[in-house]
Amino acid sequence: MGKIRFGLYGYGKVAHLHAKAIAASGNASLVSICGRDPDKAGAFARSWGIEARSSAAEMADRDKVQAVIVTTPHPLHAAHAIECLEAGLNVIVEKPMALKVADCDAMVSAARSRKLSLGVISQRRWYPSTIRIKRAIEKGDLGIPLLGQVIILGWRDQAYYNSDPWRGTWEHEGGGVIVNQAPHQLDLLSWFMGPVSGVSGSWINANHPYIKVDDSAVATVHFANGGLGSVFVSNSQKPGIYAKVYIHGSSGASAGVQTDGGAMFIAGMSGVLEPPYNDLWTIPGQEKMLDGWKREDASYFSRIDPTWHFFSLQIDDFASALAEGRKPLVTGEDGREAVKIIEGIYESAKIGRTVFY
């Protein structure tokens, strides 16, 4: 079977990174794009030597597209993903999968009913440092993962929010740090800890008077295995400090990763300043491996472009899964777990009590 023919739905900054990722993939090729503004879609298409179409159905019919990456603003993810699925196309949707769990359920149902694949962009699962934690959990080195932490101390300035008209609004972005910067770390938390069963959280706007949404939030997450998670995320710390995910197991051992360091990556606007690395590891007999791993990971990152390389690895897996008739490594059901946390924070803040799933 030849390369899987991909289309893009949406032509914003992150779409260009996905185009680079597909170009580097051994299993995928980019053939067309669609979006609501034909001029912008046409300009994108010309820059990449592909076709511009008016809809997912037209991409499927005229370009024989097999899979689409949805890169439109967050509130549109569900509608656009379902449009693609109804056109018979497999779908990878950018993070977050949607803003509501009910929308995730509708997306999963649309894929299942048509025997199509649905995935969610979660490229940090391909970091060597996060894979180490997942493998340690699977091997039982931590015992049962019972306590998890997400800490994001980031920064976004007014120029960032002015860079696109949809940023910083409930209507067009769907929220702030919770829906835009935190989903990758929330995804890792649920990947490590398992299904989410409840969320209690609150949010504030600490120092961004020019936006209407949250820039900081805290939450407690309940997991089906009886574990708890602590979430502390903020875009209010100049110039951006770090993002970390820590897991503590029933054995007393802990493992952690700094996924982002310094001023954090902005798709299409900045680079990745620091390689992610394991900064906590107390598994007996492995405590002294951190320095070696950090050198290995720094060397690896020096040889790639981390702004799109890990997209390419996930796209490769999705394309391979289609060719092999298996599930991709990240499914719609997986992406739904992070949305539970996102929805749960906003809803529990609104009603003043824990939201259970």
Rank of each mutant, 00 (worst) to 15 (best):
S129Y: 02
W126E: 07
R132G: 07
R135T: 04
K139Y: 07
R114N: 13
I121A: 14
S122W: 14
A136H: 03
E138S: 04
R114H: 15
K115E: 11
T130V: 00
V120R: 09
L116F: 15
I131S: 07
Q123C: 08
L118P: 10
S129C: 04
I137N: 02
K139G: 05
A110L: 11
S122R: 13
E138M: 08
I133L: 03
R112Y: 14
K115Y: 09
I131V: 04
L118S: 10
T130I: 03
R112A: 14
G119Q: 08
K134N: 00
R125K: 13
W126I: 05
G119L: 08
P128K: 01
P128D: 05
I131Q: 08
R124K: 06
L116Q: 10
I133K: 05
R135Q: 02
I133Y: 01
R125P: 06
S113M: 15
R114Q: 10
S113C: 14
E138L: 06
R124N: 01
R124V: 05
S117E: 13
S129D: 03
A111S: 15
T130G: 01
Q123D: 07
A111W: 06
P128Q: 03
T130F: 04
P128M: 04
S122D: 08
L118M: 11
R132V: 08
S117H: 14
W126A: 09
S113P: 10
S129L: 06
I131R: 15
I137A: 00
S129I: 07
R125S: 13
Y127M: 04
S113I: 11
E138D: 08
E138P: 05
I137Q: 00
I131N: 10
L116I: 13
S117N: 12
I131Y: 10
L118Q: 09
R112S: 13
A136C: 02
Y127R: 04
L118A: 11
K134I: 00
G140R: 03
I133T: 02
Q123Y: 12
V120G: 09
S113T: 14
R112H: 13
A111I: 13
R125Q: 11
R132D: 02
G119F: 07
S122F: 15
S129H: 03
A136F: 00
G119D: 06
I131A: 09
I137T: 02
I131K: 08
G140D: 02
Q123M: 09
R132H: 09
A110D: 09
G140S: 02
R135S: 03
R125Y: 14
T130S: 04
E138T: 11
R125W: 13
R124E: 08
S117T: 14
K115R: 07
